[in-house]
Design a binder for these strands. Structure first.
Length: 679
DNA sequence: GAGCGAAACGAGGAT
DNA sequence: CGTTTCGCTC
């Protein structure tokens, strides 16, 4: 839709493409937009600014960095560094503070930042909130000192900049006379403010969104932006698009039936002219292995092209069994997201070195690789260095620089620090003239990283080495294609999203979460794990609004299918090492039975009677208390150490006679209460 | 300070 | 079940 509008503006209205701005959710979507626009306009599209909100923020912040009191060399911290920074802050918290987990604190802060709150104005409702508020200030301070920004800052600082410097806002507003936003239902307040400030002088704002596809409220997105659009921008014209060109009628009917159960919606019913009499299929598997086997066999037997097939799931963990089953069938597949390349230690280490080259103030990077590979600088020495830095109010790297003559430190630590500083310095010197790949190879040799990887992971060092080599080839590709700077390279990686990796034409089955499937479409879609606990996810059970978001997620997943949609669920699966029974998703009950074709496991009849652990009756939670003797179908006899929670959600930790302990969900675990002591 | 094995703890989604 | 942290020994 935005493409049509952009092309129309250039073609019919003669607008200079340099005045066009379109902000998308992922780089992949922006890239697709670029391709389609050049199909329409050829070279005339050059100059239009197409990208994500985050990359737009970065673009503005780089150009205006002096106004932010940050040097141009600031780096975007990754979530791992964010977490380790927060861990340190939590550990150093004064004793009187209420305990919070680093993850909780980061999330608490992120939600508020995206809402453009500040720690000063935040009113603390509880002692935990008070702690989080303190952590927020400290976190903010630490980031500023190490010349770093986090993801949220890319939006928040941009919004603040526009808000506080009217001439800056006017300059960008003037440059971009036509502003477009895709996936408007998933924008947060910071993104809303950026768009609003940009169009304040000309009101040329064009947004596309679907309230039923709002699936990122948990990340700070607010549906308010779409519901209040007319009030926010008086005189706005609304175009309702209820014709769907993607999915067949049966698929739409099923998806519509589910989302119609939401109360918080304006309501619409999608129409299509794509008739198809084939119903949506539902496969009810005995267990998760069988579900995976069904998917793989169905893909193999169905004659459906793997390249047009996607398997969607609620959580990354569900992909493993599917991968196994596909491999077993000899089917090619690609997994989008999950524990990816960038999550690997090797990649993080190398990136930390490269970030230091750009920004030596990056303390998180120093902490990560100062002793990688081992240089004799352990915890104790690091603490000393840390103390120096705090005392002189400077960064770790500058302490390392003049630590050589400090007699209070062990010789090997001084020596190691000296080598570390030298490596980074000489890399920085080389970075001025050498291509990225040369630089990285130099780094690998300087620190003996390949040997280090071999040593630290002897069992299958090849995987670690493979990651290193893959990283090097990524650098070579970057050199060949972009010829950009090291800083550009780091930025691209920082802003890359899982969905960007997807090559829709790869001759392989695509495995991805419902969330990362947003904005994509496939001929054949398998939506697996339609069970209570997955879809809706267990963490949404308590909240009506979260349940509705789960329902929208289900709707999004189903409507990714063009021609064929297959649903599946498992009646039991292994979680945390023990087998649990599973219930079909409540969303399935919301679909009229006539729309679904039930598939039964082939030859499941006789096997049904087979005893399986999940068939054991669950123990009555009320009778389980501390000291109760129980028997677990898998682990044998044991005694209840303690219980927590009540009713269906009660959990009990049990110490088995082997001495091991383990926690179970009482309502589903195959536990038997031993009334009498055994003779 | 490093290296090893044992225990503890933890999985929701992601730009 | 898989990964991180702990705690002990050298």
């Amino acid at each position: 839709m935005i493409i049509e509008r952009l092309a129309w503006l250039v073609d019919e209205r003669g607008v200079d493409p340099r005045h066009l701005l379109a902000m998308t959710f992922t780089n992949r979507a922006a890239g697709e937009m670029r391709t389609r626009l050049s199909e329409r306009l050829g070279m005339r599209q050059v100059g239009a600014w197409l990208g994500t909100f985050h990359s737009f923020g970065l673009y503005v912040l780089r150009r205006e960095s002096e106004r932010l009191g940050r040097s141009r060399q600031f780096t975007v911290v990754d979530d791992g560094d964010q977490l380790s920074l927060m861990k340190r802050l939590v550990k150093d918290l004064p004793g009187k503070c209420a305990p919070v987990s680093p993850r909780e604190a980061l999330r608490w802060i992120s939600v508020r930042k995206q809402d453009l709150k500040t720690p000063e104005e935040e009113t603390a409702a509880s002692r935990q909130d008070e702690t989080c508020r303190l952590l927020w200030k400290q976190y903010h301070e630490a980031l500023a000192k190490s010349n770093g920004v986090d993801f949220d800052d890319l939006l928040v600082l941009t919004a603040q900049l526009f808000h506080e410097h009217d001439e800056v806002r006017a300059r960008y507003g003037n440059r971009f006379g036509y502003v477009h936003v895709d996936e408007y239902q998933d924008t947060n307040r910071a993104q809303y403010v950026i768009a609003r400030e940009l169009v304040r002088d000309h009101a040329n704002l064009f947004v596309v969104g679907d309230e039923d596809q709002s699936i990122y409220a948990w990340r700070g997105a607010t549906i308010r932006n779409i519901l209040d659009f007319e009030a926010d921008f008086p005189g706005a014209r609304i175009y309702r698009l209820e014709e769907n060109y993607r999915s067949t009628r049966t698929i739409l009917n099923v998806a519509n039936a589910v989302v119609a159960h939401n109360s918080q919606r304006l309501g619409k019913t999608l129409r299509t002219s794509r008739e198809d009499t084939r119903p949506v299929r539902l496969y009810e598997a005995e267990d998760a292995d069988e579900e995976a086997r069904f998917v793989a066999e169905d893909i193999a037997a169905g004659g459906l092209s793997p390249r047009d097939t996607a398997v969607l799931f609620r959580t990354h963990g569900q992909s493993r069994l599917i991968e196994e089953a596909l491999r077993h069938k000899g089917l090619a597949y690609v997994v989008i997201g999950g524990v990816s390349f960038f999550g690997r230690k090797e990649v993080k280490d190398l990136l930390a070195y490269l970030r230091l080259v750009v920004n030596p103030d990056d303390d998180q990077a120093v902490r990560r690789v100062l002793n990688v590979p081992n240089r004799g600088i352990g915890e104790h020495t690091l603490e000393t260095i840390d103390a120096y830095a705090a005392e002189r109010d400077c960064r770790l790297f500058s302490v390392l620089r003049d630590i050589e003559h400090d007699q209070t430190l062990p010789l090997r630590a001084r020596d190691g620090a000296g080598r570390f500083v030298h490596i980074v310095d000489s890399l920085a010197e080389k970075a001025k003239s050498s291509p990225l790949a040369t630089l990285v190879n130099l780094l690998l040799d300087d620190i003996g990283y390949r040997d280090y990887v071999k040593r630290s992971d002897e069992r299958d060092f090849r995987t670690g080495l493979e990651i290193v080599e893959e990283f090097v080839s990524a650098c070579v590709r970057f050199d060949e294609k972009k010829r950009g700077t090291l800083q550009t390279f780091l930025e691209e990686l920082a802003l890359a999203s899982d969905a960007d990796q997807l090559d829709p034409n790869a001759p392989a089955v695509k495995l991805l979460t419902c969330h990362s499937a947003k904005g994509l479409e496939f001929d054949n879609v398998y939506l697996i794990g339609l069970e209570e606990g997955f879809l809706p996810h267990a963490s949404a059970f308590e909240s009506e609004s979260e349940l509705e978001e789960e329902r929208r997620l289900c709707y999004v997943a189903m409507t990714r299918a063009r021609n064929r949609l297959t649903l599946s669920l498992a009646r039991s699966r292994i979680v945390f090492g023990s087998r649990y029974g599973r219930e079909p998703s409540r969303f399935l009950g919301e679909v009229p039975a006539a729309l679904l074709e039930h598939l039964r496991p082939a030859g499941s009849g006789p096997k049904r009677g087979e005893a399986k652990p999940s068939a054991a009756p669950a123990a009555d939670p009320a009778r389980l208390t501390m000291g109760t003797q129980v028997r677990h179908a898998q682990f044998g006899p044991g005694v209840v150490m303690y219980t927590k929670g009540t009713g269906a959600k009660m959990r009990a930790r049990i110490r088995f006679h082997t001495g091991r302990t383990r926690e179970f969900m009482v309502s589903v675990a195959p536990l038997e209460i031993l009334e009498r002591k055994k003779p």
